[in-house]
Amino acid sequence: MIFFHSTRNELIKIALKPRSYLGLAAITGLVGIILFALMADGMSMISFVTASFEQTLRFEGKVLNGNLVAFIILQMLIVHIPLLVALVTGDLISGEAAMGTLRMLMTKPITRTQLLMSKFLAGGIYTFLIVLWLGFMAVGIGRFLFGPGDLMVLNSDGLVILQEGDIIWRYMGAFCVAFLALLTISSLSICLSCFSDNSIGPIVSTMAIILLFTIIGTLDVPVFDTIRPLLFTTHMAAWRSFFEDPIPWQQIKESIGILVAHNVLFIGVSVLTFHRKDITV
């Protein structure tokens, strides 16, 4: 029961903290800008992608539609969302330590594991809401403004054109995997938050780790070949696999496995660290 109350408390704190709305506001603003840009000059952007095909072929039908707009938005924003997530979740432990409220909380009859898990759960729910809002803005508003249609996706091995009726479930799958990827960010930042007594440190550290791993992941150097598949950043774009044809299920399963493993690792490290932590502030 205390775990339920604690989770409720954490959600109330997140809901009433102004910082929590930065993420939603940022997504709204960024999506608004992208939608405006696509409405104003979306076709030229698409032409840039399809230019070499259009020398020989012509695309009939509504290429610039809500589904493509949503895909473009996701592709552009999914890199930035981790910062918005870490901004809130990286603060969940260390922010309380800095405020002194962690000391107040830990004098209550709640176990450290309960408190930590309630923060993970609340962080997960916040992350889910961010993904949901992103989905609403990208798919919902995108389809409202641009209408439905087949989705043309440019992968490194060519164009894939997916039919309208075959898209929504792919978005749902993609959002689930994207959520898992962002949940990993949330777990990482909460884990780092256990090591710190100030709010900024874990947020900056989370972004630094994402940056470092992304660079290692994109450097086409054989020495990183063995570790690249193990980095969680490598699998953060696994949501994109839902828009390939055929869907590389094995690859998606591997990505989910790696992301889940990272979550378990981060939660495990957090529990151990938080259990040993002396609340001295």
Binding site: K13, L16, G100, T101, R103, M104, T107
Partner: peptide, 14 residues
């Protein structure tokens, strides 16, 4: 147990 250790720190935004 009811306790107040060091100083009363609360959530300032609440």
């Amino acid at each position: 147990v009811g306790s107040l250790i060091e100083k009363p720190d609360f959530y300032k935004f609440l």
